[in-house]
Amino acid sequence: MQQRDRLAGHGPHGNAEKHHRHRHGPTSRHDQGHHLLQVSNLSVGFRMYDVDAPFLSAEQHMVNVIDDLGISVHSGEIIAVVGASGSGKTLLADSVMGLFEPNAAVYGEVWFDGQRMDAEALSAVRGRAGGISLVPQSVSHLDPLMRVGKQVEGFGKQGSREERRAKRRALFERYGLGEDVAQLYPHELSGGMARRVLLCCALMDDPKLIIADEPTPGLDLDLAVAALDDFRAFSDEGGGVLLITHDIELALRVADRVAVFKDGTVVEETAVANFASPDLLEHPFSRALWHALPEHGFDVTPDGGDAPC
């Protein structure tokens, strides 16, 4: 109980004030006095063979891909996790959803909506009403042999088939997808249609939290910002969005807060406003990111930081 108060419970505090290792954005709220999602001390490791050792005498040891990571998502906000491609961001999404590889070792705490979660509890909120939904990257996340409408409606869910169909129709209408789209197969969707279909899959389940894993691949910045308006609408209605991206410009345009991801951990979690000046940023890598932005001259050397992207 005491631990729960320490980690999940929340007293009032100002936006500039730092708590739980982060600072708030303007729309960050603690509904019912807790974070929507809070991850602390998360480590995900895999057993692998020592690559330098000779073949037969190589010993197994743990390699942490995610190392002591902490991040919080509030109701009403979009938080962007920004990091290089291939740095383990998708693994973060998997861990928060409780989808682990069998050989992964996962440590740490995940709190969702005031409840401490384990793998079983996470599987119970995955894709459920009031739970966590994923918006994946590309159309390859749809079954290539099944019509789109049926896939959005889903399987093994609550509610009758007619109810789900009615709901899918409403969602399609809201996002400008015609009824004929429901009859298409995934390979027949245009890029824009696919993006909206994938979003509809997530919204179909009435989630409180959406995890969007690189949801705008191949779109230029303006189109991507337009695409993310849908996420904005969702967070304005009180949901939280965890946006995973390698695109810092996009993150600064649409998100309320930015979590800077480097070497398997979040080095700084801060409001987008703090990216106005490097002096407001705390971690050297965040400052290096700032300097590397196009409008600040693509400079990748200051503060001894590594090249960010």
């Binding site: 894709g127 994923l134 994946p136 390859s140 079954d143 290539p144 889903g154 093994g156 899959c201």
Partner: peptide
């Protein structure tokens, strides 16, 4: 595959 991972993320066993 991606589509099975997504189906699992949507709550299917």
């Amino acid at each position: 595959s991606d589509y099975i991972r997504f189906a699992r993320a949507r709550g299917l066993t």
